[in-house]
Amino acid sequence: MSAVYDHLVTTLTGKFEVPADTVRPEASYDDLGLDSLAVVELFLTLQEEWAVPLDDSEATGTLTVGETVGLVEKLKTGA
């Protein structure tokens, strides 16, 4: 995968204590057991670490790990 994906996995497993074997690109944050506040906190963390303006309104439990990676990568490249 990408550096963004690898970093997101590290953040989810380290800061949010999500078991590494459950983190997959198609896994939603609901699947990973994160509540809405945790997803917003994750977005804030990613904004700080990657210096990208993620839209908090997109921080929902139905969003997948892969979709989040796509958002960050798109914002990083300015595409």
Score class of each variant (00 low, 15 high):
Val40Leu: 13
Glu49Tyr: 06
Asp31Arg: 09
Gln47Glu: 14
Arg24Phe: 09
Ala79Asn: 10
Ala3Phe: 06
Ala59Lys: 14
Val69Phe: 05
Gln47Leu: 08
Leu12Val: 11
Asp31Gly: 05
Thr11Gly: 10
Asp35Ala: 06
Thr77His: 08
Lys15Ala: 13
Phe43Trp: 02
Thr45Gln: 08
Phe16Met: 01
Ser36Arg: 06
Val4Glu: 08
Thr62Glu: 15
Leu42Lys: 07
Gly70Ile: 06
Ala20Met: 09
Ser2Phe: 09
Pro25Gly: 08
Lys74Phe: 00
Gly61Pro: 02
Pro19Thr: 13
Val39Tyr: 03
Val72Glu: 05
Thr45His: 06
His7Leu: 06
Glu48Thr: 11
Pro19Cys: 14
Leu34Ala: 03
Ala51Ser: 13
Gly33Met: 09
Gly61Ala: 14
Pro19Glu: 12
Thr10Cys: 04
Met1Trp: 11
Phe16Pro: 02
Val9Ala: 07
Gly14Leu: 02
Ala59Ile: 05
Trp50Val: 00
Leu34Arg: 08
Phe16Asp: 01
Val52Arg: 01
Asp6Ile: 03
Pro19Asp: 13
His7Pro: 00
Val18Trp: 05
Thr11His: 05
Arg24Gly: 09
Asp55His: 10
Ala20Pro: 04
Val18Thr: 08
Thr77Lys: 15
Glu41Leu: 10
Phe16Tyr: 10
Leu34Cys: 04
Glu41Asn: 13
Ala38Tyr: 01
Val18Ile: 07
Val23Leu: 09
Ala79Leu: 13
Lys15Phe: 11
Leu32Lys: 04
Leu37Tyr: 03
Ala38Gly: 03
Arg24Ile: 05
Thr62Cys: 07
Gly61Ser: 13
Asp35Leu: 06
Glu48Asn: 11
Glu73Gln: 13
Val52Cys: 02
Thr22Leu: 15
Met1Leu: 14
Val39Phe: 01
Thr22Ala: 15
Val65Met: 10
Leu12Lys: 11
Tyr29Ala: 12
Leu12Ala: 12
Thr77Ser: 15
Thr64Ala: 11
Ala59Leu: 08
Trp50Arg: 08
Thr62Lys: 15
Trp50Cys: 00
Leu54Glu: 02
Tyr5Trp: 09
Glu41Pro: 02
Leu44Cys: 03
Glu67Asn: 04
Val65Tyr: 05
Ala27Ile: 00
Trp50Lys: 08
